[in-house]
């Protein structure tokens, strides 16, 4: 197997504060990888750093064979990776269709075809193409955010707590949508508060604590790991 995404010894932070003190993770092609850990572990910071939103102070990030360390987000999108932030992840005053078009902003052609492919994956959105995204419910917004990120058919998808603030029913349908996306061939790296559930459908997982790797391994074994269970799964 080849690596789709590899972050090596990444150091990053805000202002004077260093949040990540050398974190390494790897995602293989078509793999689903979860990052779990307590609040303040630096999970979101890691995703933002990988995506070029926060400067990398040391270490490197590779996407496939390209070195994308300190690349701008727009060139990272072009290189084949998309990112869904945890909150405010749709453009409320744009229509659903326009939201998706923005997802394909760097794309030169084939927009129409791709739109249809994405609408096929999210039938709920199809009937509401012209509606303003601001009118959508929380779960629908999350769907739209996912759909926007898929507009370029990325090799790697970064998801920051896709289930945050959703009802249990919505959580299930978002998770099954993520599994579908992954089965279609996109590698997924996600952060989840619902750690137990995330582990149940991920291939592998990393545990991050205070900006350092604490543990990594097969997701299914991690659920049974006593320490993980005690610390992060609330048992």
């Amino acid at each position: 197997m080849t690596l789709a995404l590899e972050a090596t010894d990444v150091v990053a932070g805000y202002g004077e504060a260093e949040i990540l003190h050398g974190v390494s993770i790897a995602v293989e092609e078509g793999e689903m990888v979860a990052i779990i850990g307590p609040n303040g572990a630096g999970k979101s910071t890691l995703l933002k750093t990988i995506f070029g939103l926060i400067p990398t102070r040391a270490g490197s990030v590779r996407l496939g064979t390209n070195d994308i360390t300190s690349d701008r987000p727009d060139s990272i999108v072009k290189a084949g990776m998309s990112y869904v932030p945890q909150v405010e992840n749709v453009f409320p005053s744009l229509s659903i269709n326009e939201n998706l078009e923005m997802g394909a902003y760097v794309r030169q052609d084939g927009l129409r075809e791709r739109l249809e492919v994405v609408y096929d994956m999210f039938p709920d959105l199809t009937s509401r193409r012209g509606d303003g995204a601001g009118k959508l419910s929380g779960g629908q917004r999350q769907m739209l955010a996912l759909a926007r990120a898929l507009m370029l058919d990325p090799q790697v998808l970064l998801l920051d707590e896709p289930s945050a603030g959703l009802s249990p029913k919505m959580v299930d349908s978002i998770f099954s949508k993520i599994v579908d996306i992954n089965l279609a061939g996109t590698a997924v790296l996600l952060i989840e508060q619902n750690a137990r559930e995330a582990l149940s459908f991920s291939h592998r997982a990393y545990v991050l604590v205070t900006g350092e790797n604490r543990m990594e391994g097969d997701a299914k074994t991690m659920i049974d790991n006593e320490e993980v269970g005690r610390l992060y799964l609330g048992e």
Binding site: I76, P85, N89, E98, M102
Partner: peptide, 19 residues
Amino acid sequence: KAMRAMADNPDLALVSGIN
């Protein structure tokens, strides 16, 4: 559309790959 998108949410515009 990209201008309106950026007017809505500059951070998300950046994330979407808008220059």
